[in-house]
Every structure is written in structure tokens, then in C-alpha cells.
């Protein structure tokens, strides 16, 4: 008796959970499916979920008309570039805060975080003018610089929380054996912290890939990553649902898959360790 009510309860929960999950996921599913329709089928009434003539034309057209691949590469270069640069700057800083803490370390960490909370629009004017005068508007270099600085506090924080879990004695042993600080970081700390560094890397690529304030305001046609490229569909062009969907699918697929793999580390990274 108890067992069958348990099963019934589990079955009901399963049903409710799946219905809600599919409803939440539905806009994404619909976008992906519409990308494979013809424009006529995309606005057909009644709409069809799976039973239509699948076609790859939209993907071909999006690439041919708007050089999709260039924007894709802009996104890759900007998000990966800014994250790698951020790691190179942040690893030594996080090392020193985690293993040689001083009285001021705590304040320093909090101060770094506070720079991340500055609303971007508060510094839009000066950054725009500096970029204009330095010839950095609409360049990938410019965006790599801005996104590195924006995400640097998060990178330092995430690395710091991971480094703190590594016993300092191991690093000390390496030091006793005569390793220089550089060698200690590169050959001892980094290999031990690979999982943490990988999480930091991937979360920051996701954040940089989807960043849509600076990428929209500091680029035009040349360095526009996918966020800005997709924004160009806000014109009447957006009414070509199949092409909008094909372009959107290509823009979200890589990061969605990456995100799914790293979902466990997400909470820790996004709450700066406040919720584990």
C-alpha cells in the first residue's frame, strides 16, 4: 500500500516536472525547429511542430548573405581571448591572495568585486570617447580589453575559492625544494587546480559570449560578435522567422552545450561562493 502511493506520487511529480521543463525549454526547441523550415512553413497557420519538409537552406542563406562565420569567429576570439588574458592576469593574483594572505587581502577581494558592480552605463561615455580617440571602436582588440577588465574580478574570485581548497603545504614543499615562485605556480599549483581553472575558464567564456552591453555599443559591422549580429535582425528582417531561427540556433548552440556540461559549477561561480 505504502509502496504504491509512493509510486503514484513519484509518477505525478514526474509528469508535473516534465510538463514545466518542456514549457520552459519550448522557446528554444521551437527556434531550433523553425530554423529547418521554409519561410512559408515558419509562419504557417496552424503551425507544425515536427511534420514539415526539413531543409538546410536557411543556414546556407544566413552564411552567404551576412558572412555568418566571420561574426562567429569574432565571438570566439573575443570570448576566448578575454578569458585567457584574464586567467593569465588572475592566476598570480589569486595565488598570492590564497597562499600569502595579509590583513588587507579580504578588503582587496571585496574591492575587486565592487568594480564588477559598477553599472556599465555609468562609464559608457568616457569608454566610448577613449575608444574613439584610440581607434579601438569596432575592433576585436577593444572588446577583448573591455571584457577582460569586466570579468577579471569574477575570474580572481572563482580562482581564489578553488585555490583555497588546495593545501598550502604542497606548495611549500616545492618551495623548499628550491622552486621559484613562477615554477611553483606553473608546475605545482596549476596542475593541481586544473578542474577549478577549467570551470572558471568555461563560465567566463559563457559570460563573455553573451555579453550584450559593450558588444552592442562598441562595435559596428567589422568586429560585431554574434550578440550584435543577431541584433541586426531587430529590423523588419526579423520577420523572416526561418532565417532568424537559423542564425539564432547557430549563435546559441555552442554555449548552450558548454553550459550544460558546466552547470554544477555555475552556482558557485555566479554567487561568488556565497552559495555552495
Amino acid at each position: 500500500m505504502a509502496r504504491s502511493t509512493g509510486t503514484l506520487r513519484k509518477a505525478t511529480t514526474t509528469l508535473v516536472a516534465w510538463v514545466i521543463a518542456l514549457a520552459i525549454f519550448f522557446p528554444i526547441l521551437w527556434t531550433v525547429l523553425t530554423g529547418f523550415k521554409t519561410e512559408a512553413e515558419a509562419i504557417a497557420s496552424p503551425p507544425s511542430l515536427f511534420f514539415f519538409d526539413w531543409t538546410l537552406d536557411n543556414f546556407v542563406i544566413v552564411q552567404e548573405r551576412s558572412d555568418y562565420f566571420r561574426h562567429f569567429m569574432n565571438s570566439v576570439i573575443i570570448s576566448v581571448g578575454s578569458t585567457l588574458l584574464g586567467l593569465v592576469i588572475a592566476i598570480p593574483a589569486a595565488w598570492s591572495m590564497a597562499f600569502v594572505p595579509t590583513k588587507r587581502t579580504r578588503h582587496l577581494l571585496m574591492w575587486m568585486l565592487s568594480t564588477r558592480m559598477l553599472p556599465p552605463v555609468g562609464v559608457l561615455v568616457p569608454i566610448y570617447l577613449i575608444f574613439r580617440d584610440a581607434g579601438l571602436l569596432d575592433t576585436r582588440t577593444g572588446l577583448v580589453i573591455v571584457l577582460t577588465l569586466i570579468n577579471l574580478p569574477i575570474i580572481v574570485w572563482m580562482l581564489y575559492t578553488y585555490f583555497r581548497e588546495i593545501p598550502g603545504e604542497i606548495l611549500e614543499a616545492a618551495r623548499m625544494d628550491g622552486a621559484t615562485t613562477g615554477a611553483e605556480i606553473v608546475h605545482v599549483l596549476v596542475p593541481m587546480a586544473v578542474p577549478g581553472i577549467a570551470s572558471t575558464l568555461l563560465l567566463n567564456i559563457i559570460l563573455a559570449w553573451n555579453e550584450a552591453f559593450w558588444t552592442l555599443n562598441l562595435t559596428a559591422a567589422g568586429a560585431a560578435p554574434l550578440t550584435a549580429f543577431i541584433a541586426s535582425y531587430s529590423s523588419p528582417e526579423g520577420l523572416f522567422y526561418a532565417k532568424l531561427s537559423a542564425a539564432s540556433t547557430l549563435a546559441i548552440a555552442p554555449i548552450l552545450i558548454l553550459g550544460w556540461f558546466r552547470q554544477k559549477q555555475l552556482v558557485r561561480g555566479l554567487t561568488f561562493g556565497a552559495v555552495k
Partner: peptide
Amino acid sequence: FWGRGIVRLLMIAPFFIMPTVSALVWKNM
């Protein structure tokens, strides 16, 4: 319940969608 892992993946998916895609898909489609 059955399929917790997949339900979880489906539910967190919107967080990874870039703002311009999400806004245009909602607005148009």
C-alpha cells in the same frame, strides 16, 4: 522523480541564451 537530470538541463537552458536572441525570438515568433 524519473528523469531528474534531463529536466534540470531543460530548465536551466534559458540562462545560456544570449539576450539578443531571446528578445528577438520572443518578440517575433
